[in-house]
């Protein structure tokens, strides 16, 4: 079966400082990402701030235009769609945003915000009240909240509104951009539970972006690890053991809720290179415990193993 979404050589540069007397500097936020997202699967993208994972999510939805490379949704290259066709295409692909606090217009009631997708897409809804109640029930919100304003809701409730808005147009594909990062752990677990249920019931395809490897391993079918704009490892099964030293370090940084499994954290020496001035070799070399002279000079290519495990490292672990 063909993948629902397919990324080929996706690259995005950001320029800064092209002002008076300031040299123009270019930063490559996403560098040559090639990835297939199979239908009905949950693909996790994990990495720390500045690794380009949020930019990747926006490139996939073409909220940002790619510098080079392509995104294909169900066979259609969304980079070459004219504006009207792109707007229509957005019915199929939606996003849940990181910050539920600013994701709803403060002047909109919850009901108006949830129904805005139909207004934007100029879709007539036969019974708007019933549809609103249905959407709110779907995400576990009391329909009585429809007349409330965002500031009257808790963070978790707002994120449910964000999910309801994203689902209104019956999309097949959702980009979840750290949907729980600004919520309490108890609420995070609620929202992840909700997203799991929706994926199962509606057969959705997710691209789940997170900095939390343990959450990604729990929630996703497949894991993509990014470091400074590049994919360094792809785990075909979320619970496979990572082999890239950076992915190892990420895993080692998660503390289990179990005092019997305490860890000795290995200190990463060295500094994270500036994204404006990446080294010629592996971007992780400066902090990597396994780095050799080769890593400083030659950038490792992403190599696919027989089991579909992809890794970009001269010295994979294990």
């Amino acid at each position: 079966m063909t993948p629902l979404v397919s990324l080929k050589g996706l690259t995005r540069d950001f320029a800064s400082g092209s002002g008076f007397l300031k040299p123009r500097r270019v930063m490559r936020a996403v560098d040559d990402v090639t990835l297939d997202i199979p239908r009905g699967s949950v693909t996790g993208v994990v990495g720390e701030s500045g690794c380009g994972k949020s930019t990747l999510g926006r490139l996939v939805l073409r909220l940002l235009a790619a510098t080079s490379g392509s995104v294909t949704y169900d066979g259609a290259d969304i980079g070459s769609l004219p504006p009207a066709a792109l707007r229509a295409m957005r019915r199929n692909m939606q996003m849940v945003f990181q910050d539920p606090y600013s994701a709803i217009d403060p002047r909109y009631t919850i009901g108006r915000a949830v129904m805005e997708p139909y207004q934007v897409q100029r879709i007539a809804v036969l019974d708007p009240k019933a549809r609103l109640a249905e959407l709110m029930a779907m995400v576990g919100l009391n329909p009585g909240l429809a007349a409330s304003y965002p500031h009257q809701l808790s963070g978790g409730q707002k994120q449910r509104v964000g999910i309801a808005r994203a689902l209104a147009l019956n999309p097949a594909f959702l980009v979840l951009d750290e949907p729980t990062a600004s919520l309490d752990v108890s609420i995070q677990a609620q929202i992840i539970g909700l997203l799991e249920g929706l994926q199962r019931d509606l057969g959705l395809t997710y691209l789940f972006i997170s900095h939390d490897l343990s959450l990604v391993r729990y929630f996703c079918d497949r894991v993509v690890v990014m470091y400074l704009g590049r994919v360094v490892e792809v785990l075909p099964q979320a619970r496979a053991t990572p082999r890239h030293p950076y992915a190892r370090a990420l895993m080692n940084s998660h503390f289990e809720p179990d005092p019997a499994r305490r860890k000795t954290v290995q200190m990463l020496r060295g500094v994270i290179p500036s994204p404006f001035n990446l080294p010629p070799g592996c971007a992780f070399a400066a902090r990597c415990p396994a780095a050799t002279a080769l890593c400083q000079t030659d950038r490792p290519a992403l190599v696919t193993g027989t089991d579909g495990h992809q890794i970009a490292c001269h010295h994979p672990q294990g």
Binding site: L61, L63, M89, Q94, M95, I104, V120, Q121, G162
Partner: peptide, 17 residues
């Protein structure tokens, strides 16, 4: 740069909306 603006664009909204 508010998220709700990006969210609305993502719904397929045009400039006027």
């Amino acid at each position: 740069s508010e998220t709700y603006v990006e969210a609305t664009v993502n719904l397929g909204a045009g400039h006027a909306h």
